[in-house]
């Protein structure tokens, strides 16, 4: 067990080092990079990916994978804006909308988990199929992009709560929830499920319950991400978040969580998500010709993924 712990720790350090290098490069390229407002704007941009990546971590730790998070983000977004609009757009309507959105996210994750763990379906193909269903439902709720959210919603998101920028409050709450979960027996059991599933089953762990919880958490964190994106775009969009699933998997792997399950943690995924975000930022400010930016970004991410795997390899 200590061996596994050490491996996880090393991958975490590598990602942190990569992040440090990226920060320094970015600070050189972008003169006002360290101004508080720029820091806040960068962290705001990365927040949805950070949240989705934290949720994805639990699923991957349990030895599964969730490709449907992008579709869940879209579904939560359209349901939330529709509920808020239907209830008149006042303060209580916003709160009800947020709660319904979180419920939809956790519920979608629950459906994934019940199908995969309960009926013994393959996670990759199943979450692809459910993502088709979720995007279909999103288009049913809101066929076209539009339907603005009321001003207090996006003003609060861009503003402050008790003097602290709202985005930082969300980061803090997300960290607290992740830290709370990390300290629970849940985390050790989930890692056991992902690490050696048969052995975990034979020691009497309730595998189904743990895997379903992981999927529900992934759905819930996707809902958080969606509500943040809604704060940024201030409107409904049934096609929101389509690339998030793949970026989140990269972030989780960069953060040192083994795709095979059993090793890793949510904090690493946060660093991984920041690295993915910073790579895009560095390339943008490096002044590369536009058409080379995607290629360089792809190469760096592939190299980082390969490097991370190589360093943690036994």
């Amino acid at each position: 067990m200590s061996g596994l712990g050490k491996l996880g720790g090393r991958a975490w350090l590598v990602t942190a080092a990569a992040l440090l290098v990226l920060l320094m490069v970015n600070a050189v390229l972008q003169p006002n990079f360290l101004e508080p407002s720029v820091i806040q704007s960068n962290l705001t941009t990365f927040l949805p990916l950070v949240l989705v990546a934290i949720g994805q971590t639990y699923v991957i730790l349990g030895g599964d994978i969730d490709l449907s998070v992008g579709a869940i983000v879209a579904l939560v977004n359209v349901v939330t804006v529709t509920v808020i609009a239907a209830l008149g757009g006042e303060g209580t309507a916003v709160i009800v909308g947020l709660l319904v959105g979180m419920g939809v996210g956790a519920g979608s994750g629950l459906v994934n988990g019940l199908i995969i763990a309960g009926l013994r379906f393959q996670p990759i193909v199943t979450t692809f199929a459910t993502s088709i269903v979720f995007s279909g439902l999103a288009l049913w709720v809101l066929p076209q992009a539009g339907m603005p959210v009321p001003e207090p919603y996006w003003r609060t998101y861009a503003g402050t709560i008790l003097g602290v920028p709202t985005v930082y409050v969300i980061y803090l709450l997300a960290f607290l929830l992740a830290a709370f979960l990390a300290a629970r027996p849940f985390m050790i059991r989930l890692k056991a499920v992902g690490g050696l599933r048969t052995a975990a089953f034979q020691t009497g762990l309730d595998l189904g319950r743990l895997r379903v919880s992981a999927f529900a958490l992934s759905g819930l964190y996707a809902a958080f991400a969606s509500l943040c994106l809604t704060g940024e775009t201030a409107s409904g969009d049934p096609l929101m978040g389509q690339t998030l699933a793949m970026s989140a998997i990269s972030a989780v792997v960069l953060g040192g969580t083994a795709l095979a399950g059993g090793v890793g943690g949510a904090l690493g995924s946060v660093l991984g998500a920041w690295v993915v975000g910073m790579i895009g930022s560095v390339i943008f400010f490096a002044g590369l010709p536009f058409e080379y930016q995607t290629l360089v970004q792809g190469l760096i991410i592939l190299a980082a993924l390969a490097g991370g795997v190589l360093v943690t390899r036994r």
Binding site: I65, M246, S250, T294, Q297, G298, I301, L302, A306, L310
Partner: peptide, 18 residues
Amino acid sequence: LRIPPLVMTLGMMGVIQG
């Protein structure tokens, strides 16, 4: 390099698209 296929081919997808 023993990179998991999902990660390797996902990374490759990004490179080819670029």
